[in-house]
Design a binder for these strands. Structure first.
Lengths: 235, 235
DNA sequence: ATCGCAATAAGAATCGATAGTTAGCTCAGG
DNA sequence: CCTGAGCTAACTATCGATTCTTATTGCGAT
């Protein structure tokens, strides 16, 4: 039997592992997630795998078709557009509240996590451009921290969930394919600065732009979406 | 074995049944949901029960404590406050979009579902004041329809989920205990009217007031919350 | 009497086996 | 050559048994 990790339950461990695998792009959007295969990979029983898949399906990271099993959520143009609109509205709301209410402790935290982000390379060493899992995690923490002082854990939950869904689109962006150029580090720097100066309006504006730029990258940088935009079949 | 209902899978059926049972207040907030008992009640195996509980936990209608099983989400003052704030912000956003964008078809639907709501009695016949499940469902449909034209299914999902969480607070309100008085039918009527006239600002204002009034009712009308407010232990 | 430990019982998590479903293939009939 | 009923293989959903965890109770030591 598989030994327990950091979580209290076996399924909790497998849950975080599979979730990370999906968010890190180790399995393709739309690809089927066969319980039997996962059972072997994680060395747990089928029931545990099903529980994990069920949880991920409830969060829409995975889709469940009755009697046809589970697959990683597919990437589509329409979904991306809705997701971006939702994030702009809701995360926009949250950052305004957060920047307005944030106290000294929050400021310190923003500063700290932004510094950490600046010091973490996006790509792993080596010839292949493979994303640094550490960067993914710090990047998520940076965005979460910006919103954190909004003081409403329900809103924060919603934002975290939307951010996760968007992670898939960030991940499957092929570098070099997109015609859009950007300076992500600068966007983050400006965002942090606006937050620290408690300029809620500016912070919201920068966050919205940041999210929209990511969308524009994805629309041209993800082959399936670029094709879809050109009127062809999605992959 | 339990026979299949409307859903494609057995667990899908049990899911809706248990969910309804919780939303209709057939099991008390905080009460434990023992797999063995539910297994017998629904005549399905323990695995199906666990899958259902896992899904409900993911939506926060149920809480899962590792190695201590599941229970219906408890009602607390702090949670209610956050929920109300979140609903005002997010549903407010959605209704503004919806009212601005709604077309003729949407108007007709609002009119129809509001008429249906007016014609459905809140309480079932009889001496006991027991809520009419039909009203609960039409009421949910009315609120969903108001937001529907916002055109963003992700935002609608979030709103539906928040509305469900709030259902618990509506349900456990004991009539007569609250000092707050209201005319719910009028609130709904005004809301529908503002929507039909495409007055987005007014519709948002009315919706926010509607949600806040519900909160005020709950704070005095739910014994556990009233006690909590008075500085005592929550039930 | 109170504390701490061990035994126990109740219940939760995990397992592998069985039943049920769907998609794909084969082959007879048109 | 096409169609579709029936078969088959692959996979999904459901089941009940087993293993593991936690809370409780009883008992002896302080």
């Amino acid at each position: 039997m598989a030994r327990r990790g950091t979580s209290k339950t076996l399924s909790g461990d497998v849950y975080s592992q599979l979730r990370d695998a999906i968010l890190l792009g180790q399995v393709r959007p739309g690809e089927r997630l066969k319980p039997t295969a996962l059972r072997e990979e994680y060395d747990v029983s089928i029931s545990v795998v099903r529980e994990v898949l069920t949880r991920l399906a409830e969060q829409r990271l995975v889709v469940a078709e009755p009697n046809q099993g589970f697959s990683v959520a597919p990437l589509t143009r329409a979904h991306l557009e809705e997701l971006v609109e939702a994030r702009c509205s809701i995360e926009g709301l949250a950052i305004r509240m957060s920047v307005a209410r944030g106290d000294l402790e929050w400021e310190s935290k923003v500063l700290a996590v932004h510094h950490r982000l600046e010091g973490t390379p996006i790509w792993l060493e080596g010839p292949e451009k493979v994303i640094n899992p550490e960067w993914v995690s710090v990047h998520a923490a940076f965005h979460a921290t910006l919103l954190e002082a909004c003081g409403n854990s329900i809103i924060l939950d919603v934002c975290a969930s939307l951010f996760d869904m968007a992670e898939l689109y960030r991940r499957w962006n092929e570098t070099g394919t997109s015609t859009v150029t950007r300076d992500v580090a600068k966007e983050h720097r400006d965002l942090a600065a606006a937050a620290l100066e408690h300029d809620a309006e500016l912070a919201e504006k920068l966050l919205v732009e940041h999210i929209r730029t990511t969308r524009d990258m994805a629309l041209t940088g993800i082959p399936a979406l670029a094709r879809e935009a050109a009127g062809e079949q999605p992959a």
